[in-house]
Computed example of a mutant assay.
Amino acid sequence: MNRQDTFPHSSAKADQPGMSALNIAVGVLTYRRLDGIAKLLDVMTRQTRHPARPYHLTMVIVDNDAAGSARATVEGFGQTGAYDLIYVVEPNQGIPFARNRAMDSAPAGTDLFCFLDDDEWPVDGWLDAMLETREKNRADCVYGPVQPVYPDNPPEYFIKAKVFERKKNKDGQRISYAASNNVMFDYPLIRSWNLRFEEKMRFTGGTDYLFFNQAIRRGMQVFWADKALVYDIVPASRMTWKWVLQRQYRLGNTFAVSEVLHGNLKRRLYRAAYGASRVMLGLAMLPAIVISPYWGMRALTHVLRGAGMVNGILGHAYQEYKPNAAL
């Protein structure tokens, strides 16, 4: 099954006299997370629009379940009038396959493309905040903050350690990274470079790191939009030592696997040396774990990410998203 459905066009084109509305597509991947995709599509019906920044919005939903389990849920939002809606099934399981399908499914004439996750939802002013930052900085790409939303009675140690909190920057600051959890980029620019998410990294994760890293090396300018806030659900199943430690290892491993696939010898040697130095630094810091959750977790992060880098350069690719993945 590899079918694409386009639901009735929206009436909210936001055209203004003398102004041309930008065509924006928001890509969302989903896999058997019906509550999440329903919440996100509902929230996107309430995006506030500034008259000086008109746009026409299309939501592109890529179901990575070959059975099309999200179809009925998505169809329910086809008549809202807030956006056009495209639903497509990508039967090849793996995040890079679904991300590439999302970009390939954007309507003709798309100016800007965004990615959100199906366990996230943005604030009502999210899209306009992205556009404002893009306009002020003439940005090729805009990246925004992701705030974790914890389950009831989460483990106190992980909260104090700030395990699930992501790096923040000053509003309008130029940065050297981006990821697919809250991003907007110049669609024609990316297409002109023929950039794709690396399908050889089918189950490793980190293909967005590689994708944006490649774009930045080609000259893409990324700026931080602090008001473009997105909330991210942290399920209780992730608040375990096993998940947290494996995730830190995987993140380091992803960087190394990316260098093996697309870097040169110099970059691979640098990544191996950098990984080894992080292991040594983390071991030196490790005693802090008994007195400070934050610094203790920083120590473990150094050790595990460093080990992931070294092992990745040596040929081990940790398959976090493969069923029954294990170190």
Rank of each mutant, 00 (worst) to 15 (best):
W243I: 02
G94I: 09
T73G: 03
R298C: 14
S192C: 11
G68T: 13
V222Q: 02
A102Y: 01
I216M: 12
R191F: 02
K200L: 08
R174V: 12
G78R: 11
Y150T: 03
K136L: 15
A272V: 07
R218L: 14
A317T: 03
A102F: 02
H9R: 14
D119P: 03
N2I: 05
F185W: 13
N181P: 00
F203T: 14
F212T: 08
H9F: 07
M309I: 05
A317M: 09
G275E: 04
V260G: 00
A288E: 02
K136C: 03
M239N: 05
H262A: 07
E90Y: 00
G312M: 10
Q319K: 12
P54K: 01
T6A: 14
Q214I: 05
I159S: 00
Q173H: 05
R53G: 00
A14N: 13
N153M: 09
D208C: 12
G206F: 06
G315D: 08
K160V: 05
R32F: 02
Y150D: 01
G263S: 08
I24P: 04
N169Y: 15
K227N: 03
N2T: 12
A276T: 12
A102R: 01
D171Y: 05
K242E: 15
E135T: 15
P155N: 01
R174K: 15
L300M: 15
M239K: 03
T110G: 03
A82F: 03
A38F: 00
A288H: 01
L300E: 01
L40G: 02
D226G: 04
Q93E: 11
M309N: 02
L116A: 06
A98I: 10
K167V: 13
L85F: 08
T207Q: 15
T73F: 03
G27E: 10
E132Y: 04
N264T: 07
G206L: 08
A98T: 07
K167Y: 08
Y83R: 06
K168L: 12
M1Q: 13
N324W: 04
M1P: 06
Q246W: 00
M280N: 05
A326Q: 07
H9M: 07
K160G: 01
T73S: 09
R53S: 04
R217H: 07
L210F: 07
G27K: 08
W295F: 15
W193T: 01
Q248E: 14
G306Y: 02
V234C: 07
M44T: 02
A72Y: 04
E165H: 13
A179T: 11
L40P: 00
A215N: 03
R53Y: 09
Y177D: 08
E165L: 10
R305P: 00
V163I: 15
T6K: 13
L261C: 04
M19E: 06
M220V: 15
P96L: 06
N92A: 09
A284V: 15
G275D: 08
D118T: 09
Y143I: 10
R218F: 06
T73L: 04
G81V: 09
S11G: 10
L22Y: 12
G282S: 10
G36W: 08
F197L: 10
H302M: 10
V142K: 03
Q248I: 05
R166I: 08
A276P: 01
M184N: 03
N23E: 15
R278F: 07
T6E: 12
G27A: 13
D104L: 13
P96I: 01
M297K: 00
R247A: 11
G312Y: 10
I37E: 00
L29A: 11
V142A: 08
M285E: 14
E132M: 10
V290N: 04
A139G: 11
A307K: 06
T6M: 11
